[in-house]
Simulated assay, not measured.
Amino acid sequence: MARNVEFDEALAIQKAMEVFWKKGYNATSLRDLTDAMQINSSSLYNTIGDKQELFVRCVQHYTNIRKKDWDLRLASERSPLAVLTDYIHEAVNIIINGEDSCMAVKSAFEVATNDERVKQILAADDQRSNRFLYDLIQKAMDKGEIKNDEDPALLADYFNSTWTGWYESYILHKDPVKIKRMAAYFIKQLTK
């Protein structure tokens, strides 16, 4: 009689997400995934499905983690501008020090153009990101930390697209000083 393989699905998704994040969708093999998840391929197919379905779940898991982080930051009692500035500095650190950078950016370029489900998950994540930034910027404006003559929605959109540009710039040039200078300039523009 075949033995039922029981495993912690949430932990398995986390481990698979880390593999996809590091290697990308196309470079990740089924063996990479089953080794990381510590299950065999039949257990994967029986519980989650194929590699594509697993990837979709991993992207959803990743975006859920980001949402929780944004919610915590928004609930902070700290100055909204300080929270935003810390977020920008952390984004810079991820770009220049993190081997894996942003899974959402990687997935958008590698998979979302061909997979509608991944595209929808990432589009929802982008909307949440914009909302998070908008809310922080608006709170900072309400407290007088940022001049209220700016459009918070435009600033949120601008930061999101700028951050992606920093990521691309670092991939191409590996110049951490350049990325830090652009971040400092962006913060300076916010607080003029």
Rank of each mutant, 00 (worst) to 15 (best):
A2Y: 13
R3A: 10
E6Q: 11
A10W: 04
Q14C: 03
E18M: 07
V19S: 07
W21Q: 00
K22D: 14
L30K: 08
L33I: 10
A36D: 05
A36M: 06
A36T: 02
I39M: 06
S42C: 00
S43L: 00
N46C: 06
N46Q: 10
G49L: 06
D50C: 07
K51I: 11
Q52E: 14
F55M: 06
V56L: 04
C58E: 05
T63Q: 05
I65A: 07
K67F: 09
K68E: 15
W70P: 00
D71T: 03
A75I: 07
S76D: 04
S79H: 10
L81G: 02
T85W: 02
T85K: 12
I88S: 06
I88G: 06
H89N: 13
E90G: 12
E90H: 13
V92T: 05
V92H: 05
N97R: 09
N97D: 13
S101T: 09
K106N: 07
T113M: 13
D115R: 02
V118Q: 02
Q120G: 04
I121Q: 09
L122C: 07
A124W: 05
R131K: 15
F132K: 05
Y134C: 04
Q138F: 00
K139S: 12
D142Q: 13
G144M: 01
E145H: 01
D149Q: 11
E150M: 05
N160Y: 08
T164R: 09
G165H: 07
G165W: 04
S169G: 03
Y170F: 15
D175W: 12
V177E: 15
R181Y: 08
A184W: 07
I187W: 09
T191H: 05
